[in-house]
Design a binder for these strands. Structure first.
Lengths: 192, 192
DNA sequence: CGTTTGCTTGAATTCTGTCAAAGCAGGTGG
DNA sequence: CCACCTGCTTTGACAGAATTCAAGCAAACG
């Protein structure tokens, strides 16, 4: 229980027994099934979810009904609508499960308390978000500077599990492409 | 001196006199001229720069010599190659000044010390990076889900000063477009 | 005043999206 | 066990959009 979360935490910020007990008291476990919503656009996002097991995605839906995937989250990643979480404004993203999943949930209230009471928690959060920030900057860099072929091969190298576990039309959406275009890129890469 | 930095800090995390003195002891001021480098690809990034005055950009250069702007930083923003800064690996980004600028510089050593000694500094950094993370997520969302017209008008609304102060071929680079394409988008938007 | 820099425009080319259809599993119910 | 869905991927033809290359023009600068 909370195994991966503890591992993620402890490898960045080594934890004493007592501090872990304090933190654990603010966590809760949630299981959701494939295709089930964790958050719907318009609701206020009250939790950050850390993925113990499974796979989720966050995405927007345009007026014409088209979906655009903003993020995937597999084991060891967190997912949330951070803006809604911090401001309590209505969420602009939807989040649902791509696979049956197990999540460690941290509410805004719990997070605020932990930030006051536990320097380790504050350090962990800082490191986690800094890592996420760097990853987003890399993604943007790839988007504006590389060809589609190079972006896709880079994605495979960086996140092989995502490419294996997630349907390709979702990868296309994540890259801002149509499924047809991604299919053609893959053919070009596999040597006609 | 350090006015904007103090303001940015104090509005997020109110500071006592003594704590500000502690922090101020770790800051230094740097002035750089337009077109001057703050960081070159391959060097290790030893500072995070907070912009007191002026405008900078970070960008990559491809083998063919084409530049791709990853970020702009105006007054109140920070800029750095965070990955290089944290790992001491060679930087993958270049940073230079678009206007004559004044910067508040924080070295890695100073930042580490402050993170240990000042809970307020840790809180400030967490809030700053969280805000930057959310901004990047918005940018990615716009990139994969909106038309070029909507992306450009969104940019004008969100960062009017950037669009006014930065040459348009740099805006085009930032959006991942050629200058010609951006010029045509602007004509379409101004009603032929 | 000449040069540089940035923005615009045009025509040809290349790439991507759209629409329609077909192929290909995996899963379900009969 | 098989036939039939259903969801996903691939393919083709065509229309639309962006890039490329070339040229022209205006403003800024030394």
């Amino acid at each position: 229980m909370y195994d991966r979360y503890f591992e993620s935490f402890n490898k960045r910020v080594p934890l004493s027994e007592s501090e872990w007990e304090l933190i654990k008291g603010h966590l809760s476990l949630k299981k959701i099934r494939k295709k089930q919503y964790l958050l719907q656009e318009g609701d206020v996002c009250k939790y950050v979810a850390f993925v113990e097991k499974g796979a989720l995605r966050s995405y927007t839906v345009n007026e014409d009904g088209s979906e655009h995937i903003v993020q995937f989250a597999l084991e060891g990643w967190f997912i949330s609508d951070m803006y809604s979480y911090l401001t309590t404004e209505p969420a602009t993203y939807n989040i649902d499960a791509i696979e049956d999943s197990e999540l460690v949930m941290i509410s805004r209230e719990s997070s605020d308390e932990l930030l006051e009471q536990s320097p380790s928690y504050k350090s962990y959060l800082l490191q986690l978000i800094t890592g996420a920030y760097i990853a987003l900057q890399k993604r943007i860099t790839a988007t504006i500077s590389l060809s589609l072929e190079d972006r896709y091969t880079g994605l495979i190298k960086t996140y092989p599990d995502i490419v294996q576990r997630v349907p390709q039309h979702m990868i296309a959406s994540y890259m801002g492409l149509t499924p047809e275009t991604l299919s053609r890129i893959r053919r070009r890469l596999s040597g006609n």
